[in-house]
Design a protein around this nucleic acid. Structure first.
Lengths: 205, 205
DNA sequence: AGAAAATCTTGACATGTGTCCAAGATCGGG
DNA sequence: CCCGATCTTGGACACATGTCAAGATTTTCT
């Protein structure tokens, strides 16, 4: 049984963690709007009701803040994707569900996905982001591979490509759909749906 | 027949254009090294033997310089890719040539490709880059589609996907191979080779 | 050779940035 | 209610950046 001091300690740490989350969520909005390169700590603070100095009370430096935001995005992303694979009972159902799910994800938060690709690009130049980006990429790859495995189980066949290749191709489709969607194309979502539905069976020839 | 004045005029304009190219090439090196966000006009000038003010004599502003650099990269890229499709005489040859060519391109100038993905990401936030990026994307898509068409002609079959989908998938493979290659993976190039060789036939099922 | 035009350098200006800090505000336990 | 810890503010500092203009230097033309 924890002592009252320990309870107080934990409650205080929780409060600190809650505040970090709160500030990170606000920062995430601004980051998604402006992108990594064009977002300053002051701009982030301006979109909250607090001062820019507060950010430095809760985060060691800008890199710490961005990293924390990206980790939070990762959690939201994994949650969003969860349950995509489970429902379908036939291969064709799974293939269409795959396309529908990815299209829905894109339609739901295109600006956050834009930020993801922004940060992933920056990670090729800034060491600080590399580990977090690699971890998120790994999770997304696992997610895609679970989809492929489910399709394999439903068809009784085995995939003829590696997990990384499967992820790379789905990611390519998703990224280009995002690009066109943000450019104002009304058909980008439907095309993404179709392309993903078609890609899944291709991985088994 | 041009007058001497016209000849002189053209020669001067050419000289101006040559200088622009020269400065853009130097800028391209620095940009490839540091990425778009971390490169300033002064840093670019420091890597040449000239002053930073000179850049503003040859380019209206930073956006003009970057745009010009990207256009130059586009030309080099299209040239590099040209002739990839022509040599193969059997489907299998073409498929391996496709993988080999893309892997060779990646191995040849990974930093320039990194810059390309950087600028393409930035174009999702900065209006100024959007047109040039779209044009380059179009050229790359055409290049991939010529490859697919050549494969179709050799096999006597018809592709079962759209040009944009084919480009998106090859681009996904290429981008992820670049990521792993830059991260120090020794197998990224070989994997890209194999994945591309395998992808081409998949587009015809 | 000398004038005119071009090329190039240097320095300045305004702005924006990350970081840090000292002082005030707020809160919670004694 | 009061005091200490915690939270928050607003500003200062050092630095970097894009832009620009005035002057120096080189090239070009007559």
């Amino acid at each position: 049984m924890p002592s009252t001091a320990a309870v107080r300690q934990r409650s205080r740490a929780d409060k600190f963690e809650d505040r970090r989350r709160e500030l990170a969520d606000a920062a995430l909005l601004t980051l998604a709007e402006l992108g990594y390169a064009r977002t300053s700590l002051r701009t982030i603070a301006d979109n909250t009701e607090h001062s820019h100095g507060l950010l430095h009370y809760y985060f060691a430096d800008k890199s710490d803040l961005i990293t924390y935001c990206v980790q939070r995005y990762k959690d939201a992303c994994v949650q969003r994707y969860e349950g995509l694979v489970a429902e379908a009972s036939t291969p064709a159902e799974l293939a269409t569900a795959c396309g529908n799910g990815l299209a829905a994800t894109l339609a739901d938060a295109p600006l956050l996905h834009r930020l993801w690709y922004d940060v992933r690009s920056q990670s090729l130049f800034e060491e600080a982001f590399r580990d977090d980006v690699a971890e998120i990429d790994g999770r997304l790859q696992d997610m895609i591979w679970r989809l492929v495995r489910a399709y394999a189980d439903l068809t009784g066949t085995e995939p003829t490509c590696s997990p990384s290749a499967a992820y790379a191709m789905f990611d390519g489709l998703f990224q280009h759909a995002l690009q066109r969607h943000l450019a104002g194309s009304g058909t980008a979502l439907d095309e993404l749906r179709d392309h993903c539905r078609d890609l899944l069976p291709r991985l088994f020839v």
